[in-house]
């Protein structure tokens, strides 16, 4: 059973599959070029010491993004 969440809702070490990306324009392009597209698996590695931004593993590498940006990415927890 999967529940739709945002990437920001995932806790450390939780995995998810990207369902859709609500970002537009530059943000959307940036996420696409970094490999954050529907169907891709992501793992939350950690959040920064001040809890924001977060670091995730995607496409075999690590990406840091702010929670405000992670909110735009909907995921299914797996």
């Amino acid at each position: 059973m999967t529940i739709a969440l945002s990437l920001s809702d995932l806790k450390t070490n939780e995995r998810g599959r990207i369902r859709l990306c609500r970002a537009r324009g530059l943000m959307k392009q940036k996420l696409i070029s970094m490999g954050l597209i529907p169907g891709v698996e992501v793992t939350v590695l950690r959040s920064a010491p001040l809890l924001d931004p977060i670091e995730i593993a995607v496409q075999n590498y690590q990406v840091a993004l702010r929670r405000s940006e992670a909110l735009l990415v909907e995921v299914d927890r797996i």
């Binding site: 970002a23 530059l26 940036k30 690590q62 990406v63 840091a64 993004l65 702010r66």
Partner: peptide
């Protein structure tokens, strides 16, 4: 401005 999406 640019989104903060940065490779580590």
């Amino acid at each position: 401005t640019a989104p903060f999406v940065m490779e580590m």
